[in-house]
Design a protein around this nucleic acid. Structure first.
Lengths: 202, 202
DNA sequence: CGCCCTTCTTGAACGCGTTCAAATCGAGGT
DNA sequence: ACCTCGATTTGAACGCGTTCAAGAAGGGCG
């Protein structure tokens, strides 16, 4: 039954999944509460793969921008084989009540894991960040990643090359903004961003 | 049949809609290509309402922040009666191939209309904006609005008061960023943002 | 008037995700 | 060997969005 999951991903219906596994439809539901749980497993899998795929870059690079780019590109690398799958996945995740929604309480563990990855980007880097912003930055980076994924899902260019370009364009911008966050002129902005993050949280 | 649409909104199934209107299910499909088209009509309706609800503020205020806050709050005002409906709507809109997706080519007209509203926020205001950023700013403001709507959909606080707080927190931040955009130190940032917007577009 | 065409209406049926009562299987105990 | 219990399996059925062949009604033309 372990193989049940891997084989199912290429299919889109529970009936096809059940048929592929040589069982009845009801049996598929016995092992997985729903199709959504199947997708959830898939999601958790890609999270782990993302961390693994990002590890070489994180071990090698100290520069914040390089680390961030590495992690973002790794994320897209991991997701790419499933692009044809993405629309379905995204639609499911978009349900505000879905445990798959990036913003749901059920997703807090995967979300925290993802945010932790971005925390690692930051902590292993030489970036100098405003002291107040620093704890909030991983979450902001995660939100940026969510934006990238959103774009990726909609990206119809060959091999989602546009998403790659977006990353390559966004990383230097984020890098620069992070660098500027300690600037005296921008301290009120930094403060406001932090306040906003707190609003978002509670 | 004109009333068909209004009555249908409170229901969630085509069967209930058809029953409510005293016709057969197939007949509902005769008049509307799909449930999605029904939702599309609803969406177009809220767009018009948004513009109307924002008009007093736009007529009265010259201050950029006040105008922006007025438009954002008006948007939430218009959507509020439908919050119980929002999850369904949002899930439909999240389908990348859906004509309802804010990012789809089919939605270009409603999107342009919405962006035009934010352009009006800008043009009727006293804000001084970087000359290069100015043409791109309405779209950025629209994206911010999309973020607010995203938050609103997920907001379970009473009367979505959290979303109101988010707006009240975000507006001064946007205002300040817009004001800073002409700063010499930030010109590279401004340039990068504009480049990024172009990446997003093509 | 009859025929043809267009428009509108119907309801059974399709595939989807899901449910659940009934049946089967296997292990342990007497 | 039989019984009990828990685990596993089954497939019909449910509601959902949607489709579509067939039927009904109305209008125009010969």
């Amino acid at each position: 039954m372990r193989l049940f999951r891997e084989r199912g991903y290429a299919r889109t219906t529970m009936r096809a999944i059940a048929q592929e596994a040589g069982v009845a439809v009801g049996n598929a539901y016995y092992y997985f509460g729903s199709k959504e749980h199947l997708i959830q497993e898939f999601y958790a899998g890609t999270q782990h793969e993302h961390r693994a795929a990002a590890a070489p870059t994180l071990a090698r690079e100290r520069d914040f921008a390089a680390r961030l780019a590495g992690v973002l590109h790794a994320g897209v690398d991991v997701l790419t084989p499933y692009h044809s799958f993405a629309a379905t996945f995204f639609k499911t995740a978009a349900e505000p009540t879905s445990p798959l929604s990036p913003f749901s309480s059920e997703s807090s563990e995967p979300r925290e894991a993802s945010i932790a990855l971005f925390r690692e980007v930051l902590e292993g880097s030489t970036a100098r960040v405003d002291a107040e912003l620093r704890p909030a930055l991983p979450e902001l980076l995660w939100l940026a990643y969510m934006g990238v994924v959103l774009y990726w899902v909609h990206d119809r260019s060959p091999a989602q090359v546009k998403t790659r370009q977006l990353i390559d364009g966004a990383v230097p911008l984020v890098d620069r903004l992070v660098g500027l966050s300690r600037l005296r002129v921008l301290r009120p902005v930094t403060r406001q961003v932090i306040t906003l993050i707190h609003t978002l949280r509670h």
